[in-house]
């Protein structure tokens, strides 16, 4: 899985490309955590536009980052989930703790 980082208005935007499973989850976790610490941000947007597959390992990654930022009054949002990925989010109750937006711009305005 390839990651591209952008920062806008004190918010870290993680553009993901590829498949998010147990194999790729560890790399994503480490890279995102390092970036959060390096920048000292407490707002995070995961852009799923380039993610074609995710299983429940992805849920762990999102919840883990949510918990981390919650300690700093932070927030997490996700952008542009494919229908299959959305099903997993719904099943896990993830929408109780974060929202999905159509675009990164929309997410930035709401965070």
């Amino acid at each position: 899985m390839q990651l591209k980082f952008n920062v806008e208005d004190g918010c870290l935007i993680v553009e993901m490309h590829g498949e998010l499973d147990h194999h790729s989850a560890e790399g994503v976790r480490i890279k995102v955590d390092n970036k959060i610490e390096e920048l000292g941000v407490n707002k995070l947007i995961f852009d799923f536009t380039g993610v074609n597959f995710m299983d429940s390992s992805g849920i762990g990654v999102i919840i883990g980052r949510y918990k981390k930022l919650k300690d700093y009054d932070g927030k997490v949002a996700v952008v542009n989930l494919k229908p299959q990925i959305k099903k997993i989010f719904e099943l896990s109750g993830l929408f109780k703790i974060l929202n999905e937006y159509k675009t990164v711009q929309e997410a930035l305005l709401s965070l």
């Binding site: 989850a25 976790r29 299983d55 429940s56 390992s57 849920i59 762990g60 990654v61 919840i63 883990g64 099903k87 997993i88 099943l91 896990s92």
Partner: peptide
């Protein structure tokens, strides 16, 4: 400790 969501079997059952 591995940040597992505990949703594996639930996903299999649902899908």
């Amino acid at each position: 400790e591995l940040e597992r969501s505990g949703m594996g079997f639930t996903v299999m059952e649902t899908f």
